[in-house]
């Protein structure tokens, strides 16, 4: 009889706790769901082939698109990746393989501090380094700002990925007479590669969503631009400009651009998800 009371109490507590956890999950998902719904419902109307491929139209003109901003964002992200990926991945590999000493902790601490610097401050740094010296806004400055932003998270995440590689694999390679540096490159990095690629894609996706550091580095451009020393359009800055404008057509286009950005970032995250599943460890 006593046992039955006990199990009844347990069952009620079990239900209660499951219910509480479920509520927490739903509450956490609600903002995400509503953002998705809002962007899709308001942005879907603007989506069309011409919206994705054409240059922006002037106020009052109908039509026009954000083709140059899509290309601009991709361009900036590629520049950022070229600068940020080698630095971030390299630092991460160093931290994992050789980071036990004082220099390692210094690098780790610096990465932590850099990681908590607001992105707009990083934008100011890129402004000072590139815009002020070249006397013009440029894609290079924007790429540099995004690249710097990628480094700290990339470094720490790469370190984690490399640390996941079992020590026994390093020993196996070293015992074959393979030098340490080649063991790191050919065995450790190769084993951790899926994880690092996943981290890199997520970092790129995050960089694609940055606005603040681009406002005064890559600025904006009404035309196609493929030169690194010229200002370039980007989806985020375009959204910002359209959204704060008083014109209803532009505000509609802001929603449309937001949806495009969301799809782009979502695609990258999805890609990252699949690389993760394919990785070997």
């Amino acid at each position: 009889m006593k046992m039955r009371v006990h199990s009844a109490v347990r069952r009620v507590v079990n239900w209660g706790m499951t219910g509480l956890c479920l509520t927490a999950v739903l509450m956490a998902l609600m903002p995400l769901g509503s953002i998705l719904w809002l962007v899709v419902s308001k942005g879907a109307r603007s989506l069309s082939i011409s919206f994705l491929t054409e240059l922006p139209a002037a106020v009052g003109e109908s039509g026009g698109g954000v083709g140059n901003a899509i290309v601009g964002t991709l361009y900036l992200v590629v520049l950022a990746g070229l600068l940020g990926l080698p630095l971030g991945v390299g630092a991460g590999v160093y931290l994992a393989e050789r980071g036990a000493g004082r220099l390692g902790s210094a690098v780790r601490f610096t990465a932590e501090v850099l990681g908590s610097v607001p992105s707009i401050v990083v934008g100011v740094v890129a402004y000072g380094l590139v815009v002020a010296t070249m006397h013009r806004f440029s894609a290079l400055a924007g790429g540099l700002a995004l690249g710097i932003l990628m480094v700290p998270t990339l470094a720490r995440a790469t370190e984690e990925m490399v640390r996941l590689v079992p020590h026994t694999l390093r020993e196996a390679s070293l015992a074959l007479g393979v030098p340490a540096w080649r063991t790191t490159l050919s065995i450790v990095l190769r084993t951790a590669w899926g994880g690092i690629l996943n981290v890199a894609l997520l970092g790129i996706a995050r960089a694609a969503g940055e606005t603040a550091p681009l406002l005064f580095t890559s600025l904006n451009n009404q035309y196609w631009n493929f030169r690194p020393d010229q200002p370039t359009a980007s989806l985020t800055v375009q959204i910002f400009n359209y959204a704060i404008s008083p014109y209803e057509d532009w505000q509609r286009k802001a929603w449309g651009s937001a949806l495009v950005l969301l799809l782009l970032v979502g695609l990258l995250s999805l890609l990252a998800h699949f690389t993760r599943r394919r990785s070997a460890i």
């Binding site: 026994t168 694999l169 020993e171 196996a172 015992a175 065995i187 084993t191 590669w193 070997a280």
Partner: peptide, 13 residues
Amino acid sequence: VGMVFQRANVFPT
């Protein structure tokens, strides 16, 4: 001087 370890450590990739 080659070595074989306690647990098989093939390269998984």
